[in-house]
Design a protein around this nucleic acid. Structure first.
Lengths: 202, 202
DNA sequence: CTCGAAATGTTTACAGTGACAACATATGGC
DNA sequence: GCCATATGTTGTCACTGTAAACATTTCGAG
């Protein structure tokens, strides 16, 4: 697949737009460019130089905003989790909460993985930063809280911890199997499988 | 040459052992060394040169046996699937078949992921070779057949296709979540979660 | 057995990567 | 207005996968 051109030319979203040396908000621009690349070429191995070129900046400039590549990827992963959480919350509301909302949440999880395979994979593959306690408003916790909330309604008699883990593992497994091409993406099928344990055919 | 060594010295399993130029069965030796490396350093990014050094051979020698690095990784992934299938079959037999055997199969799946995280991840991350039809005796199919066999007994009334997918996704999700440090490895917990859908507490 | 073709391994080299150090330029507080 | 600091650039290094040319061993045909 060719090799050059295509430069996405994602600049900062306004800020200063100095035009020359300084970029305005490079950190945000780099993350945006990274997300774009992840959304387009699935297998393409996101490199620092390509990213810098997208933003129109020298390769080593990125090191002023991220200690190393890992940190950059961590930032992208974090954004991925945030988006996932937002989509799940949205699905929950749209379905009117309750068991139906809970199921919709699960389906949104798998759909996100299907729509943004590279971002989803990155988001979950990143090593947990150790200091990942129960506070901190990063997206992962939002998603997990929704999960805990819904699981009580769907399976009243069961230990909520076990049920939550079951639900999470189920959708995560579906997501990964779809990403890795072990199974095909099929929303109806996903709904059916999720419904097997968590009642409510609706 | 051959002054240093230090290398792990994984040679072929007998063959000729020419001693000098020719290695005997380099392909097998490389795969063995690769599996060893995968089993030891989880995060360590398996490189061609390191692998060649382990085997005591020049880096480019590997290209006589694999078209490129991808092909080598594919071979390792295949071996991983084969081992997974073997462990599952073993677990099934040890539990005496039936529903208990089916559950044991699922637990073995997760345990394998926990015991060999890098190999498990590699095995499932590799792109499917396209020509992955229902024949071919490679490990993946063995595992899937076991799955189909067990699912009928565990959930008599349910569409076996849906049930099989459910079971697979569940254990795969648990495996991936453990690999990515989202949850802790806890065999009892895994058994409990698997038992939630697939009855039989015992 | 001899001999040349094929298989296997080596050396050298190249383009691409993440990262560091030294240097250049813009920004903002005094 | 001036200088400390943040930000961006150029040059370089070690390392990676891999291609090309060369060396050695093995094997089958005469």
């Amino acid at each position: 697949m060719a090799g050059k051109d295509n430069s996405v030319n994602i600049k900062g979203d306004g800020a200063k737009a100095t035009g020359a040396y300084h970029h305005g908000d490079l950190r945000a621009a780099v993350i945006a460019a990274g997300l774009t690349r992840l959304a387009e070429g699935d297998g393409a191995e996101l490199g620092l130089r390509a990213l810098a070129r997208d933003v129109g900046v020298s390769a080593t400039a990125l090191y002023r905003h991220f200690p190393d590549k890992e940190a950059l990827l961590d930032a992208l992963a974090d954004e991925g989790l945030r988006r996932l959480g937002a989509l799940q919350a949205q699905a929950w509301l749209k379905a009117g909460g309750g068991v139906a909302g809970f199921k919709a949440t699960g389906i949104a999880y798998v759909r996100f993985a299907h729509d943004e395979p590279a971002l989803f994979r990155l988001s979950f593959t990143r090593q947990m930063p150790e200091r990942y306690t129960k506070d901190a408003g990063d997206g992962g916790e939002v998603a997990y809280n929704l999960l805990r909330a819904g699981v009580g309604e769907a399976l009243p008699g069961v230990d909520p911890d076990t049920a939550a883990l079951h639900a999470w593992a189920l959708v995560h497994g579906l997501a990964m199997l779809i990403l890795d091409r072990r199974i095909e993406w099929d929303e109806a099928k996903v709904a059916e499988v999720v419904g097997l344990t968590f009642g409510g055919v609706g």
